[in-house]
């Protein structure tokens, strides 16, 4: 009897505590829900976080955030944010597509944004990148920096988006040197490959053994293993998504930037300034949404010729003279 009473008392107290807690968080702050790779992946998700963080520091407005552990949590957490009044709610990654379709329809007065997918609902902003264009530019740099005539690319696994990076990279490299050999090796076979830096290091090592002296990693968190292995062998790696030039100065040729941080910052800022639009925003080389990173950590590695070649290709892509094939349009790569 007493036991039952204690138990219900605990439940009641917990309920009251939660109610108070929820009342506290019912603010109109923006929210970010990270994709499976997690917040600090030194890559895609972290870039989102950096954008949100910059917005928060500049405006003093906080933001809610959540890292999912299972797919069932996607809908649950997004709905929790919407129910508690978060606005706008931004999600990086096309894995959110189905979730955002469901939840955005339930909360027509809340604004949503998704990166890497197109969702045509009246309250959703879609942001997509032309990763193949930026990868084309780093492919040019890789081919010019290579002394062995063999370069590599390491995508996490067989996956359309990652293949689009790899395919753009190959096209860029071949545009410089049609005879260049390009090794293309996956780390694993599923999303867990993103969290496997050990596997990334092994794959990079095998490419190094086969003569590659520049390796482009397209593997999220696992890419750190690739860059580490390449740096240990004193060869050149190429980072992805965020600027990773600083990870191993002198051994990271450049990074294929995907300005997810800018897209996130702009989304929150637009909402704050009342300029929010629910449209499809496409960010390519012309919009400076993708491209190689140049900073003090790689200036010794980039020659003037390389810089000129990138500038020329950038101009041609912008003008439409060069059309980089997107793997995702037909699931195949011409080179």
């Amino acid at each position: 009897m007493t036991k039952t009473f204690t138990r219900s008392a605990i439940a009641l107290a917990a309920g009251a505590g939660m109610a108070a807690l929820m009342a506290g968080t019912a603010l109109a702050d923006p929210a970010v829900l990270y994709d499976g790779g997690g917040k600090f992946d030194a890559s895609f998700n972290e870039s989102t976080f950096n954008g949100a963080q910059r917005f928060s520091e500049e405006t003093g407005i906080g933001f809610g955030e959540f890292e999912i552990t299972t797919d069932a949590q996607r809908e649950q957490a997004m709905r929790q944010f919407a129910q508690r009044g978060a606005n706008p709610i931004l999600v990086p990654g096309f894995n959110w597509e189905t979730t955002i379709r469901t939840v955005a329809a339930e909360f027509p007065d809340t604004n949503f944004a998704i990166i890497d997918a197109v969702v045509d609902l009246p309250n959703v902003r879609s942001i997509v990148f032309k990763e193949h264009e930026g990868s084309y530019l780093v492919g040019i740099l890789a081919a010019m920096a290579s002394e062995t005539g063999t370069i590599g690319v390491v995508p996490a696994f067989d996956f359309a988006l990652l293949n689009a990076f790899a395919c753009g990279y190959k096209q860029g490299a071949k545009s410089v040197n049609p005879d260049i050999e390009i090794l293309d090796t996956y780390i694993g076979s599923g999303f867990d490959a993103f969290n496997n830096p050990g596997g990334g290091a092994e794959v990079a090592q095998s490419q190094l053994d086969r003569g590659a002296d520049v390796i482009f990693q397209v593997a999220g968190g696992a890419g750190q293993g690739v860059l580490q292995a390449v740096a240990d062998a004193d060869k050149l790696g190429i980072g992805v998504d965020s600027n990773q030039n600083h990870l191993h100065p002198g051994n990271v040729l450049t990074s294929m930037l995907k300005r997810v941080d800018v897209a996130t910052y702009n989304a929150f800022k637009d909402f704050e300034d009342g300029n929010w639009t629910n449209e499809i925003i496409t960010l390519g080389v012309a919009e400076e949404g993708v491209g190689p990173a140049f900073d003090e950590h790689n200036e010794a590695l980039i020659t003037d010729e390389m810089r000129a070649a990138v500038d020329e290709a950038t101009a041609k892509i912008t003008s439409g003279e060069i059309v980089v094939h997107d793997f995702r349009t037909d699931n195949s790569c011409p080179v």
Binding site: I10, A11, A14, G15, M18
Partner: peptide, 24 residues
């Protein structure tokens, strides 16, 4: 203690939460 409270409430305290518990 607050963490335990939140976990208990989350798992059993309301319909949505309890439903998710049963789903897992």
């Amino acid at each position: 203690l607050e963490a335990v409270q939140i976990m208990l409430y989350g798992a059993f305290g309301y319909g949505d939460g309890f439903g998710y518990t049963l789903y897992y």
